[in-house]
Design a protein around this nucleic acid. Sequence first.
DNA 1: GACCACTATATCGAATCGATATAGCGAAAG
DNA 2: CTTTCGCTATATCGATTCGATATAGTGGTC
Lengths: 213, 213
Amino acid sequence: MLDMAILGLLEERDLHGYEIRRQLRDNLGILANVSFGSIYPALTRLEKSGAVQATDSGPGPEGQARTPKAPHTGSLSGELAVLRARRHPTTHSRRGKKVYRITDKGRQLFVQLLAEGGTLDDARSFGLRLAFARHLAPQARLSLLERRRAQLVQRLAQAEGANVELDVYARSVVQHTADSVAQDISWLDRLIASERAAFHPAPADLTYEGDIR
Amino acid sequence: MLDMAILGLLEERDLHGYEIRRQLRDNLGILANVSFGSIYPALTRLEKSGAVQATDSGPGPEGQARTPKAPHTGSLSGELAVLRARRHPTTHSRRGKKVYRITDKGRQLFVQLLAEGGTLDDARSFGLRLAFARHLAPQARLSLLERRRAQLVQRLAQAEGANVELDVYARSVVQHTADSVAQDISWLDRLIASERAAFHPAPADLTYEGDIR
DNA sequence: GACCACTATATCGAATCGATATAGCGAAAG
DNA sequence: CTTTCGCTATATCGATTCGATATAGTGGTC
């Protein structure tokens, strides 16, 4: 789920982890607040699978590899930090920016994740998918919306006869959630209608121009 | 989060894992669909912490199994049987059940989790908390509602100026999510007003000559 | 020069999910 | 009668995500 979002952002431009998090938080923050504990592992596995490439960007415009200057702070804590870092020499990274670039394989994976991947159970996952839906073909976009709609309708139907024997608070929560789901459905209905209108630009026009089989 | 829900159910009566899942799904399913992969580990850690006790007992005192006369055929009947079973949950007491009972420590933990524990970031967590809010003291209940409200207001404010430079789909998702949050807030407002009315049972207590409408 | 806020990467443990394995049992199907 | 099917019931595994925490460079302020 997060992989898809990251790839979607990298479609626009190359980014490093911190920037990815900021863009997600600033633009889609109300939808999904993603933590670093998710982003960095996600970037690592995307790189490992070949979907993105990391380019170690230097501090200056020359972009050369940074000279590994030792932390000569003179403080005791600094020396201890160096020792600790040497004791765990896993990649022992210098704190430079790692700028990631999407590969062809990544673009392929992105569209696949967008169209089929993952569940569209929760609003989080579906919302992120829809937020990048401009990268989908029109019929795939429509299919995404309709599948989500069907899922919500089913969820609503299941909750129909369940309100019995609940106290005020539980019933209020269930009722409010059901109302929210109903509103999600009508929102999806508007989106679906809009999609169909874009696909058939003259729905009430019965001339021979728009051939429908 | 799940621990709280399990303890809340066990406050009512002793249950085993499968029943816990069914009750959650049937009653609060629209809110949170919990999988066995969460429930059984949760029960294990609750038992390990002393909040619940497992009694290896067979069929409990409820024992009255309804005889399901079901003259149905094939796979279609299977679906119908599922639907009917959900409406009329029959407690089949079968082999090797682990029935869990809440302890005093568990009741203590339950109220603590309900009032303070965990984040109330997502609707899932808060909804489950509120669903069991009858076990809270009135002022703790009010505090829960108000903290959630403040959190949503902040979230909404953060998303104010973020709509720029998003395409149609992303903007639609963000806008719809913001609308949902706004509706959540007014729902909370109604609940808070209702709580305050219950706490001050005579809001129209007008000693002076006043207008009562 | 001390302090603080922001940028930046990384790791850890815990919680949850979805899939899967295993098995008993009742009823319909053949 | 035996097979098959579906429901009940417990458990585990790998993957993902979160929140907390550690580390460190940079730039601005008092």
